[in-house]
């Protein structure tokens, strides 16, 4: 679940900037990630927030919002594999729904490579646990620009290329459904705020 707030005025102590800022925050519910203690959860949350910010910053036209901050708050209700990809998709949709001018929607997804060398798109937690290597990708499909890439494990050249292509294909599919979802939301009459 993702909410977007803003634009609001930037804090004075951060000084003047002629571009806007994106302030991302990710929380996991205590039952979302099983068997993690507090500090591990904290590390997970901050790394997820950093990834989210990285993925979205390139897509939002921050130079159109000088001196302002957008707060993107995300809560992972249940972690069932591919959390980062889902976070990026959700946050991108929320930004678009809030009417923030962006360059493109940003779908994100993961690929994991099994020990046998098979590539799996959007791995489940069991698959991710057994993986030999994996990657997470967020992309702006219309511009064909990658905004976030994080690779774990050892890859041979051709495998990495195949993995990237698979993830790009996955992101293309996601973008189509994200677009549909946004259009459907626009068609619905809104409750006045």
């Amino acid at each position: 679940m993702v909410g977007v707030f803003g634009p609001r005025q930037s804090e004075v102590k951060l000084g003047f900037t002629d571009t806007g800022r994106l302030n991302c925050e990710v929380r996991f519910t205590s039952f979302a990630a099983a068997r993690l203690n507090k500090t591990e959860l904290g590390a997970l949350e901050s790394s997820a927030a950093a990834a989210l910010q990285q993925a979205l910053e390139a897509a939002v036209q921050l130079d159109k919002f000088p001196k302002s901050v957008f707060d993107v708050s995300a809560v992972v209700l249940e972690g069932g594999g591919g959390d980062t990809g889902a976070l990026v998709c959700g946050a991108s949709l929320a930004l678009a729904d809030a009417g923030v001018e962006g360059l493109d929607l940003v779908p994100g997804c993961g690929v994991s490579k099994t020990a046998a060398g098979e590539l799996l798109l959007d791995p489940s937690p069991e698959e991710a646990a057994a993986e030999e290597a994996g990657l997470v990708l967020a992309v702006m499909p219309q511009l064909n620009e990658v905004t976030l890439l994080s690779v774990r494990g050892r890859w041979a050249d051709s495998e990495l290329q195949a993995g990237l292509e698979l993830a790009l294909g996955g992101c293309g599919q996601l973008r189509a459904s994200m677009r549909e979802c946004l259009l459907a939301a626009l068609a619905e009459p809104r409750m006045p705020a």
């Binding site: 897509a59 690779v151 290329q161 790009l168």
Partner: peptide, 20 residues
């Protein structure tokens, strides 16, 4: 010379071919 991991940073996107 094998890739063991990668992370991206920066405020702009990179084209997929550039990434490779």
């Amino acid at each position: 010379g094998q890739v063991c991991g990668a992370t991206s940073s920066g405020r702009a996107g990179v084209e997929a071919s550039m990434l490779l």
